[in-house]
Write a protein that binds this DNA or RNA. Structure first.
Lengths: 339, 339
DNA sequence: TTGAAAGCGTTACCAC
DNA sequence: GTGGTAACGCTTTCAA
């Protein structure tokens, strides 16, 4: 079914059908009704090859906002953005990337505003889980600018699609890895993440619940807060190890592995403590090589970046996310051999 | 740079540039030279949006040949084929799927011939590693029909792209999993795969080499041949366990996990023997649930199917595989928690 | 409120 | 050998 066929069947012109399909108004109600009825009966879907060709004339810009500064995990995500951008050159699509440090709502709102000013056609954003951001996303949506959330999702907003991992499932996977690495027996310390991001708490909870359920001999003895910061996680871990010298395993919920490991080495416990962490950033990888980190759970940052931009493009092309409104990355278990 | 721009610059028509670009002949040598020179200088690449639109008129068919019968691993691969086919409906692309059982070269040649007769525009094939198949692939190539190899590759042919795993690396990953699952100490039996497929030997070799290099306390005491067949692997494993009652770990190189496990249970060794296997097929999954199989290495069959068809489509669209001539699936380590 | 026509980039076909 | 034209499906613009 093409627009032309619909038009012929209804005895109107292609332009009229286009106006109905895209809600551009200025169509007599009964004409609109007639068009809509035939569309419903014959099940029209926009042909993306045709749409792609016209899209090129407008050279659409996709805006991107991520808290990547000081967070090496995002190096790969951004590489994924760029990879997708290269794939989309034929469609005239370009990216406008704004990076920030930390999780300040006002700052994020400002960057979104700048992109809006610049006239972007779609948005890819790693949202802070805050009502003001959700509101902004909804406002953009009613202006015809779809938003894709990447890496972390946001509650109570009408974002078009989330691209990232299932954090709770990631926590369960990490628990399984811990089970195998420790042989099911350990005194465990947990280093937590950032509660401003929706995922970190979910991951932590998934981990603890599963450990308690299937590993009676793994005791969670203490926890420390890393705040996604190397220095902070170093000091907190050191304090934790001073409080609990019997700890022989550590789970790191999010960033901060470098600080944790420094503390472990400083206490001379690197032969005893088995660490399970998230994300294959350079620091984690080198500590895996040294044997301190036994396994890492990876959430495919490159693909997150790539797929989120492609999802934004799909929104421009067809108005619906091709793979549904949640594109979930599987967690990969990385050991020395498959780094 | 578009064909029209090139044409205008050379003072020829679009048709002529098209003939030069696609080698359709009937162009005066000096005209051709002129066109080629400007193309080289200005770096023309075909616009895929434009090409896609014309492709639709020809409703191209992609032919597929896989040895899927009796091999549940391929259920997911085929699901991936279908998923890609759905994504390509807008381009008028359809699939023509031929399945076979086992690895008979003549049979595979016959199926390829049938697809050629039917006028397919591109081929996706799980090739038997045999010179006759390689020849056929080359012959198709010179007739303008590109071939994508999926799941296993073939030596000495000019296939356009291989989509599948790196088998040697998969063997190394499996060795790492075995190292962790056994704590680095075991009497190991190996159940081998099918030597007609290029990958199985590579995987086996990658595994053994790595075990010998990093696990001095894992002794490889015996091996049995499974031939990708449940019955056969059952009998061979039983014989192996009778010969070597001290075996307490088994690595299964390819299919046949069900037979292996039956033999282990029959010998009453299911509490002692730790199995590491490949591919998350239903039988393997249920044995993982029962605790006999400790971990499975997965090579992303769904994505293999999907990406190979997309790669074939890319060949039709742009003449080169978008992601290079090797699309390598990462191996995923599956434990109970991330099945 | 609607229709007609041009254009996006490529290819196929027919005429010269 | 070569050029012109129509076609793929959609959007935009201009005219009515």
């Amino acid at each position: 079914m093409t627009i032309k066929q619909i038009a012929d069947l209804c005895g109107v012109s292609r332009g009229t059908v286009d106006r109905v399909l895209n809600g551009r108004g200025k169509v007599k109600p009964e004409t609109e009704e007639r068009v809509l009825r035939t569309i419903r009966q014959l099940g029209y879907t926009k042909n993306i090859a045709g749409k792609a060709l016209t899209l090129k004339k407008t050279t659409p810009v996709i805006g991107v906002v991520v808290s990547s500064e000081g967070n090496p995990f995002f190096d790969d995500v951004i590489e994924g953005f760029r990879q997708a951008e290269r794939e989309l050159t034929d469609y005239g699509v370009t990216l406008m990337l704004k990076t920030m440090r930390g999780y300040d709502v006002r700052r994020q709102l400002k960057l979104i505003g700048e992109l809006e000013e610049a006239g972007v056609s779609a948005l890819v954003i790693q949202p802070i889980n805050d009502a003001r951001i959700a509101e902004k996303i909804d406002a953009l949506g009613s202006n015809g600018i779809p938003t894709i959330t990447v890496n972390t999702d946001i509650e109570n907003s009408c974002r078009s699609c989330y691209v990232g991992s299932d954090y709770a499932a990631g926590g369960v996977t990490a628990a399984g890895v811990m089970r195998i690495v420790t042989g099911g027996k350990a005194k465990l310390g947990i280093v937590t993440g950032v509660s401003m991001l929706l995922g970190h708490d979910q991951r932590h909870e998934g981990f603890e619940k599963h450990i308690r359920r299937v590993c009676p001999d793994i005791a969670i003895v203490d926890s420390a807060s890393a705040m996604d910061d190397t220095e902070h996680s170093y000091r907190m871990t050191l304090a934790m190890l001073n409080r609990n010298p019997q700890i022989d395993a550590i789970f790191i919920v999010a960033a901060g592995a470098e600080g944790v490991c420094r503390a472990v080495v400083e206490k001379g416990r690197e032969k005893v403590i088995r660490v399970v962490a998230f994300d294959t950033v350079p620091a984690t990888i080198s500590m895996m090589r040294s044997g301190l980190v036994r396994a890492v759970i990876c959430q495919q940052p490159l693909r997150q970046g790539h797929d989120s931009v492609i999802a934004a493009f799909d929104m421009l092309l067809s108005g619906i996310p091709k793979q549904g409104n949640r594109i979930i990355m599987e967690h990969q278990i990385k050991i020395l051999e498959n780094l």
